[in-house]
Amino acid sequence: MQLTQIFDRRLAVGLLLVLGALLALSPAGLRQAEQLSAQDISHMVTGKSDHVTAEEVSAWIIDKQPDLLIVDLRSSEEYQQYHLPGAVNIPLTRLFEPESLDQLSDLYTIVLYSNGGTHAAQAWVLLQQMGIKSYVMLGGLNYWVDAILNPQPPGDLAADSEILQYQFRKGASGFFNGGGVSVEQENQPAQSDAPRPKLPPRRKKKGEEGC
């Protein structure tokens, strides 16, 4: 009994020393989730899991989606002139400063937008490489202004779906321009027309304490 105990202890100590020494020589602890290959990225782009439409974003804002984080990638001057309701300003040039990254918790559905689509797409790729999942708002702010804030009525021969889309935009436009138009009813057909991308399951934000 006594002997086996001593033997076991020595074995455990020896094993620990070997395991520890191997760790000391290894890059353990530094390995991150693998970088996305070009194939993965093209797959995500064609699979449409990378973007959301301005209509969807407007519906989320109106619904007050609790886990929505809209990021305005333009300069702070442009941001001050106009930005989407509730958007935070992280200029693309400052995207990788620690205080910027701190805001981009993976508990949020992150929507990126810039004036057009280029900067948002660039930011999307960069964030993917860091393992942060986000969506690009298609068409950027330019499209937002055209489609949501100043929707143009479709022509006489428009298809039903176009008319429904217009009605939705008109309602959303009222909301964002402060017109107070109720969008609840008009919202419904638009949803069936363009189903929302599946939101990641809503998660409770973790407390600061680990204990």
């Binding site: 395991l19 353990a28 530094l30 390995r31 991150q32 393992g131």
Partner: peptide, 26 residues
């Protein structure tokens, strides 16, 4: 502590576990 620590590091080394996604006490 050493069991959990060693386990974490070896799992990371084996590309099973992403250390950056483990809660780190600030």
């Amino acid at each position: 502590i050493i069991v959990a620590m060693t386990g974490l590091l070896y799992l990371n080394l084996a590309d099973v576990l992403d250390m950056s996604k483990i809660y780190l006490n600030p």
